[in-house]
Amino acid sequence: MGTKRKIPLSIFAIICGIFMILPIYFLVIGSFKMPNDVFELEVNFSHLTFDNFRAAFETPIIRSIWNSLLVSTVVTVVALIFHAMSGYALARLEFPGKTFVFGWMISTLMVPFTVIMIPLYMVTKNLGMANSYLGLIIPMIFNAYGIFLFRQFYRDFPKELEEAAYMEGLSIAGAFFRIVLPLSKPIIIPLTIGFFTANWNNYLWPLIINQNEKLWVVQVALANVIGAEHETQWTLVLAAALVCALPMFILFFIMQKYLVEGVKMTGIK
């Protein structure tokens, strides 16, 4: 495609992108407003303030960011490795019961969380993980979403690579960990973003499993800012929500760097 044709397309794409973040503009601008102006469309620049952020920093949100970082990072890293292994086995290896295992795993995606919440709580508590980081982390590692996506990805993976590895005397596991997994970046990057975000924004489970204020994650802390019975301080909530989302924005910008090119094909050459 010529560069000329790209210019209108680029403009179209950027305009759509700006529409996408328009609601976020209201989040940002709202967090700088005085409480009484929060739902006004016009922005009165002499009426903007940092007070909301000052107030947000006094809530337990800042303290809870560390907990969320820890939980989300560990879940993401461990889940990626486990899910890649399973996805690979389901896509590329032959073993008895394959269809059943795949179907069984996918079916675990289909239960509404509200219903398994109570039994899950019982299981986790009986394993001695309630009120600890383990209880926040371990149950969240296992879900079929990543397994499914890895499986789909590996089904298209070029066979030549593994065959070359076997020729060099590598075992299946060796070929996977040393050749295949390092070339899976194109799928690992989106999944990193997906897992991290999902855990960063997880709310109901951390609320249920943990009674210890020291282990609060950001969403539980944020809910505590929102949750007055008859009155919501919207400017404070918006500022707090923005603070909560900032680490995610930063992660997205960092991850962009790795999304640049398809790695798999360049690996063959």
């Binding site: 820890l70 890293v77 461990v78 993980m129 009120n131 600890s132 383990l134 390092p182 020291k214």
Partner: peptide, 29 residues
Amino acid sequence: MKFWKSFVVMAMALTLILGGCSSSKSNGE
């Protein structure tokens, strides 16, 4: 490969931190 090394190191470090933290249980009873 660098990407992977830092990945694994991070995971190990965090696991260690976790081991340390999870032992400090608090129980209301």
